[in-house]
Design a binder for these strands. Structure first.
Lengths: 344, 344
DNA sequence: ACGTTCAGCGCAACCGATTGCGTAAATATA
DNA sequence: TATATTTACGCAATCGGTTGCGCTGAACGT
């Protein structure tokens, strides 16, 4: 009844063709020292017998798997899940598996996950840092063992490896400039944890825009959250609008907080964008659903994932190359009603 | 310079303790035939030497990995990514990896992915079916080889394995009943592909509610989409509202289409919920952002993922048990303004 | 005619853990 | 005291590829 279907191995193929297993192994991957017709014969028989390569065995021998690890904060966030979608697509095209692990934005978790992934002998790693993380020693194990590490979005300069990012400074500058063009005079900024470079750079872009326009940088209008979630966004907006001299615009470092700002405004009869213009960041689905639609900065999430995956795969191909490049993708300012004061 | 740090193996530990590798192997997993003090000694030395078990080697020997495969349509959808979040959390607590693969709702992709996952020797599989899929032979390979398969949400009755679902019929009934209670007289239903049981059952719940209230079932008010995305939702709403006798309520089988219905209504000056009540399904984040907030049915996404993972892990523990259970989780009707005609 | 080159393939040692079977010593039973 | 049983551990095969090195015969050069 219970048929123990033995799997076909290279040994089966070898003995059937009266050659050695090594020849079969090499033939299957077009090794240069194997004859043309032998390669064909092996592949043909392999196909006929339904041979399935055992990656586990190869991984054991090579002490490296064809699995790419992905460390992110939370899967269930639009930007992250889209990025993973891109990673998965690219990796699966290259015959690689993708294994994911969530840090939940905790430093402790991130360390534990790094250890677990390392123990799983992943062949490459893609990381978007946890909000908390300030030290990066837990990644050096990978680098020391020639396991390519690529950072995406939430990166660090403390480690010398590939990065896939957007120009957060330019994006912050662009977004703030737009608000200024729309006639906003007192622009507040709701940022994220400032040790996370993406948030720091967005804030610096914001400040640079003010400077270039000879506008005062008012520290009391620059807030930074811990998680930058909706609760924080709501409370920070409440704080800002309760100031003696409240802002007439808010540039938020993500859409979640920006949407909360809009909701606070709606609850309190503050007209958007006339009384308060709101600019977000990320182009999350909610930015298009909220009323009025939220102006924001688009993040090429899927592409960032694809490119990060490609970088990992590239390093796996050419182990000799040790260059570490930083790839910066273009962002787009998406102008919607939440900031559109001047009708065009 | 380049220190080839040799990994500690059970052989190193064995020779240092002057015992055999088999003893070390057994001691590390508390095998009954190993003495108490031997177990302690082995574990102590393993800790001191920084021994890391090589799962690859174990997988090769046992011909089964500690990796759980997850097949879903798209990662970047709120329900799916939340579910995966739950799976990952539970699996990682049990020391298992999670590898994901997207079908993009395509039958062909699903088959290819199944084959790839099988070749990866996964130790268990969690599936939420692609929209297109109508045949299920591509999963039998797993069952024949005692690899536990658990279906979540988008399930099928054609296969005899575990399922984690919600009561879609009851949910559809409940949702429609609510609309009726709110005084809606002509309720339309926007459903998904009817060969996918979740959508069929929601539609049947809808019809049952009408029947119980002696309301006519008007076929022209029952539409079913292919992907049930926003474009389809918008067009179907347009179609419905252009009928000679348009509906005064729409029950959509997901939030995406429901939000599109609201947007169509807003674009065309149709008051919600007075002129048109809209009910969604899933409790996606957008349902809370859209104005007016969307009434919907909540899906315990994270829990469904956790439970599915637990089922897989359970089957891995006790291989003898071959029961296949269906676990049905509770849904909640979330009433918001989009259906609230009667002020309470 | 003889040394050289090289394409083409085989040998066998890995990679690290698992496990059925065997065995010696210790303890229990008759 | 002899035998049965239990306790605790070792032996060695096995999982399926991979790869450095070595071998062979034929083509080639002078």
């Amino acid at each position: 009844m219970k048929q123990k279907k033995r799997e076909i191995t290279i040994y089966d193929i070898a003995s059937e063709l009266n050659v050695s297993p090594s020849t079969v192994s090499r033939a299957l991957k077009d090794h240069y020292s194997i004859g043309k017709e032998m390669i064909e014969a092996v592949k043909k028989l392999a196909r006929e017998r339904g041979y399935r390569p055992n990656h586990i065995a190869a991984s054991l021998r090579k002490n490296k798997t064809n699995t790419i690890g992905v460390m992110i904060s939370w899967i269930n966030r639009p930007f992250i899940s889209s990025m993973i979608s891109g990673i998965e697509e690219e990796a699966s095209n290259a015959g690689c598996n993708v294994i994911i692990s969530q840090s939940h934005d905790s430093y402790e978790h991130e360390i534990a996950n790094a250890r677990a992934l390392y123990n799983s002998r992943i062949g490459g790693l893609i990381v978007s840092l946890a909000m908390e993380t300030r030290k990066y020693n837990h990644f050096s194990t990978f680098l020391e063992n020639d396991i390519p590490v690529v950072f995406v979005d939430r990166v660090t300069d403390d480690l010398n490896c590939d990065k896939v990012v957007i120009d957060n400074f330019a994006a912050g500058l662009m977004a703030t400039n737009h608000l200024i063009e729309q006639g906003c005079k007192r622009i507040a900024h709701i940022g994220g944890a400032q040790h996370r470079s993406i948030y720091k750079q967005r804030a610096e872009g914001y400040m640079e825009a003010l400077r270039r326009n000879n506008m005062e940088i008012d520290e009391s209008l620059m807030l930074s959250g811990v998680m930058l979630n909706s609760e924080e966004g709501y409370r920070m907006t409440e704080h800002l609008m309760s100031l003696p001299n409240p802002p007439d615009a808010i540039f938020s470092a993500n859409d979640t907080a920006a949407v909360s700002a809009i909701q606070y405004a709606k609850h309190n009869g503050i007209k958007i964008p006339q009384k308060l213009a709101v600019m977000g960041f990320n182009n999350d689905p909610i930015s298009l659903i909220i009323d009025p639609p939220l102006s924001t900065v688009s993040h090429p999430a899927v592409d960032m994932g694809k490119i990060a995956a490609r970088q990992v795969l590239k390093h796996r191909e050419h182990k000799d190359i040790i260059t570490s490049e930083t790839i910066t993708l273009k962002t787009d300012l998406i102008i919607r009603e939440s900031t559109l004061r001047k009708k065009r």
